[in-house]
């Protein structure tokens, strides 16, 4: 493992230390699942040797949306308005499609107030990594149910949820995301492998991470608590990710492993565990997500990958240089062009 700590001078392939991938000190509760996700993001971006200044972080409002301040302090970030991170991130990528977009939101942000924007971002296949830190509860307003709370899930106050949850992964597969995964904030290895694969994916990656709220939703009766997830998480497969720049040949058992080649030449290795599952088949993903699981079972892993679908940026036929900084001679038509238009209007 390349977990930071130990030698302070350890650097990645572009010569940066892991400290340079950290951000401000977290103000979230001790033990919050979101903090663990922040750690995985720090490690992943460091290990993958991403230039921090190539990244644009965007979030909405809520506990989860505070987290972009806690990782990649050398990257620009935008903590916007509730539920509208997709719009800001989409716009940023229109202005500069060379940016690596990372959106961190929560279940309230994405599935309630921002559901419309979320769905249209899926439809457009906006090329960015979209992480939903999903705890089933509104933490920052002190513990109301969100739209991902399971039926029968109980609040600390004793209120029981009787409304069915919205499955963001199912929405992701059905509406156009081209990389859909679910993980658990406490599953260090799996989450990091998923994040690395998402970084190598060209289109929209939606990653639903069950992330327990230690303050309002980590008690008996909650279906998004640490205890519940430990007992009910069922990994679809064991994931390994081999970056393109990594020459190590990973050994795996033929016949039980599926290899997916990513856009940048890196490879995603899925070691099959419980079932024979091919994440490149859309109907299979939809069927899997609809199939009744064992009571309380939470499937994790990479549910769907489509490496061929065009992204929003592909469809816009843009050149290599970002639109935002094109010089005047590229964006102002000639005097003759204006004169021709005027002549037509005479």
């Amino acid at each position: 493992m390349s977990t930071p700590g130990g030698t302070a001078k350890k650097t990645n392939r572009i010569g940066l230390e892991v400290m340079q991938y950290r951000g401000g000190k977290t103000t979230l509760c001790a033990g919050c699942g979101h903090n663990a996700i922040t750690e995985r993001l720090v490690e992943t971006f460091w290990e993958m040797g991403v230039q921090p200044w190539d990244v644009a972080k965007v979030s909405g409002i809520g506990c989860s949306s505070k987290t972009p301040a806690y990782f990649l302090g050398l990257s620009h970030g935008f903590n916007g308005v509730h539920g509208r991170a997709p719009a800001i991130a989409t716009g940023a990528l229109l202005a500069n499609h060379n940016l690596i977009g990372v959106v961190v939101t929560g279940d309230g942000d994405t599935v309630s107030i921002g559901l419309g924007q979320f769905m249209h971002m899926l439809r457009r296949n906006v090329p960015l990594i979209y992480i939903i830190e999903n705890n089933g509860v509104y933490g920052l307003t002190k513990g109301q149910f969100s739209a991902t709370a399971d039926v029968g899930s109980k609040l600390k106050t004793g209120v029981v949820n009787d409304m069915p949850p919205i499955d963001v992964c199912l929405a992701g597969v059905e509406l156009g995301a081209t990389f859909v995964a679910r993980s658990f904030s406490g599953d260090k290895r799996q989450l990091q492998a998923i994040l690395k694969a998402a970084l190598s994916h060209k289109g929209l990656s939606v990653i639903d991470v069950i992330s327990p709220c230690t303050t309002f939703n980590d008690h008996e009766g909650s279906t998004k608590s640490y205890g519940y997830m430990r007992d009910h998480e069922e990994a679809l497969h064991d994931i390994d990710f081999v970056p393109a720049y990594d020459d190590i040949s990973v050994e795996y058992e033929e016949g039980t492993t599926r290899e997916v080649e990513m856009h940048d030449g890196s490879r995603l290795l899925l070691r099959k565990l419980a079932r024979d599952y091919d994440p490149t088949v859309r109907f299979a993903a939809i069927e899997l997500l609809n199939r009744p699981q064992k009571p309380g079972e939470v499937l994790t892993g990479i549910l769907y990958i489509d490496n061929d679908a065009p992204t929003l940026i592909d469809r816009l036929q843009l050149g290599d240089a970002p639109l935002g900084t094109l010089p005047v001679d590229k964006v102002r038509p000639s005097r003759e062009a204006l004169e021709r238009v005027m002549e037509e209007l005479r």
């Binding site: 965007v58 800001i88 989409t90 940023a92 990528l93 229109l94 202005a95 940016l99």
Partner: peptide, 10 residues
């Protein structure tokens, strides 16, 4: 929102 995101990014 998109216009604002784009304005932010230049």
């Amino acid at each position: 929102g998109m216009a604002i995101g784009a304005g932010w990014a230049g």
